[in-house]
Amino acid sequence: MLKLEGINKIFNEATPDEKIALDNIHLELKTGDFVTVIGSNGAGKSTMMNMISGALTPDLGKIEINGKDVTRLPEHKRSHFIGRVFQDPMAGTAPTMTIEENLAIAYSRNQKRTLRIGVDKKRREFFKESLETLHLNLENRLNAKVGLLSGGERQALSLLMATFTKPNILLLDEHTAALDPSRAELITNLTKQLVEKDKLTTLMVTHNMQQAIDLGNRLIMMDKGQIILEVEPSLKKDLQIDDLMLQFQHIRGEKMVSDRTLLSV
């Protein structure tokens, strides 16, 4: 389904700010895989997500989706088959447009946009039904401007919009990080529900170790632009936070950095 081969990325090469963001990344996802990604700040997680979505182009390496080389395919073409939710709840929706208009934009993701009215009767019904699955009462606020919604509501809507058209790949980059714990849990459950419903192939970055362990069938840990640990489905089930900490220490020969990151449970 998704294949990264020898991906390299250096920012600001040959300047004092030079930064090796990705160092020879190899990763393969099978259809239906749900991979959680952890790693300290600056490990290169977001950069990897941006490579897959096409927001950034790798210096070296190849990206394949469904056996097709997409390395040079621009972002807006790749997003036909990639759904994304960003960390910032503001980022995934258009604030001055209504809920139904936002959904209409998501709805026409994988078809050519035409001069057809975006929200017609039939679609409105469908949007309503889809919103009902969120249990946030948004189905009765179809004409509310999205800018008026709370961060959690917007993130739930973003998630629905990203999964609406059953994308081949779903990319979630710390999409619960900006929310308070109860909202974060709501979005986490929603993620599980939506991903399971359509068996979406998913890559999810998180700083919450417990979340990384609870969700998905595989886990990878990144550090300094490399994937330093891969936990396969058979082992992932019984994984504990302490295991991950020990593994990190073992591989890097140092204690896991105690930033906000890896310790938050």
Binding site: S53, E75, H76, K77, R78, S79, H80, I82, G83, R84, F86, M90, A91, G92, T93, A94, P95, T96, M97, E101, N102, A104, I105, A106, S108, R109, N110, R113, G118, M161, A162
Partner: peptide
Amino acid sequence: LAIRATGDNGKMIRSFSA
């Protein structure tokens, strides 16, 4: 709608293949 979203949130509408 896509033109309006372009003015409103370019990053978002690009992620919806516009």
